[in-house]
Design a protein around this nucleic acid. Structure first.
Lengths: 225, 225
DNA sequence: ACCGGATGTCAAGATGGCGTCAAGGAGCGT
DNA sequence: ACGCTCCTTGACGCCATCTTGACATCCGGT
């Protein structure tokens, strides 16, 4: 299934040109010509990446980006006529993933899209991860052990997901804290222990002999297996 | 543990300016002024991200990038004087992660570095080190001898890793103590002996005839091989 | 071969990390 | 506002690991 790109720009000529090129390049393409319909189409089409012009009727690009970010981490590539630095900074701050300044070449656009998708790979197509008995579905935020569904809190799920994102790797409490709390840095590292403990109570058949979440004394935790 | 940035540019003025700003922004910074030393410094310093000028003496930026990519997935941000599109495309093709066109603002540079680090967080992968029978996986904090896994404590692992970080080099007890305890300096040097002993008990087939951790009488210890 | 200092060996005590749990607080939906 | 869940913090005690010290053994120089 080819990755789907939503292209938002108010100039039909440009949009069609982009669509044609991207389709030839193996993408599937959805279109929108103003900010409001961009959000609608996004909801309906669930694209893997959004190419977004800043200057748009009805709702400008900044606004669209902001609203998208309210409930999606979809990668966004901004199209901007100006190459003003303030624009770039503002865009980065709002969570844009890259820029292309008009005029741009279609080839460059396509390359950048691919680059972004490489970078965010695994966040876009979130297939369930299977580790023997343990199944982790990031999309549904669901975990099952030996076929039995287990309810985890957000933090517990994040912990488990992080640990199993690189099976065997030892994570320090600091790393886990970052993964769980975002770079917020004020927290007490031992809080992680408590979350690990409640996680174990939920997923380990015998929490005193953990199989899925192992302690590495003096360092941190790692996934089993 | 602040992220380390390697800055490579042949103009000392620019380099110093960048260094100063990045350090104020909470990064630790390593420097190189030409392509060849960039590779050397990279090896030694193991930075988390590389800021690389294209125009460099001795080995240009493209070449440096190519060689880096041969055995590292470290994120690379390119500095380019021109904003030629071919440059951008070539760079993306070679696996650069982002661009900044000169002249750029330090603030933007810093923002881009942060953006890249967010994207690549937790994806930098440290390869296991292989020495014949002995395999040392720093990331998993795991050691195996002839395919058989051995459990080490943190100190034992650190010792072994340190010794094998420069195979053959003789380390004094003081050096090993530093590597193990961080610069804390109150410890009894003979403590190292005890750790060496328990390490040998775990990894040496015949601890009385060590192969992996050798004694250098009157000086310290070194790795076998 | 002998001697003195260096290293190996080991066990017991000190240290500090972790499991455990309860209480308080923040956030959220009703 | 209420109750709910989840997150955070702190206390306590156990236990793995580290450290220390004692004694045995080894090494290198004379």
């Amino acid at each position: 299934m080819s990755p789907k790109v939503l292209v938002v720009d108010d100039e039909p000529g440009i949009v069609q040109m982009i669509r044609k090129f991207l389709e030839k390049d193996g993408f599937s393409v959805a279109l929108a010509y103003d900010g409001v319909s961009a959000l609608e189409v996004f909801k309906k089409e669930q694209p893997d990446i959004v190419v977004l012009d800043i200057m748009l009727p009805r709702l400008n690009g900044w606004e669209v980006l902001k609203r998208l970010r309210e409930d999606s981490q979809v990668p966004v590539l901004l199209l901007t006529a100006r190459s003003l630095e303030e624009d770039k900074i503002a865009g980065l701050g709002l969570g844009a993933d890259d820029y292309v300044t008009k005029p741009f070449s279609l080839r460059e656009l396509s390359l950048r899209i691919r680059a972004i998708m490489r970078r965010t790979a695994g966040q876009v197509y979130q297939k369930p991860m299977v580790f023997g008995d343990l199944v982790l579905d990031p999309e549904k935020m669901e975990v099952s052990i030996a076929g039995k569904k287990v309810d985890l809190t957000r933090t517990e799920f994040q912990l488990l997901k992080t640990l199993y994102s690189r099976p065997g790797k030892v994570f320090t409490r600091e790393e886990l804290l970052n993964a769980v709390a975002g770079d917020i840095y004020e927290s007490y590292e031992r809080t992680i222990d408590t979350h690990i403990w409640s996680l174990r109570k939920k997923i380990e058949p015998d929490p005193s002999k953990p199989q899925y979440v192992l302690t590495v004394f003096g360092v941190g935790y790692k996934s089993g297996k």
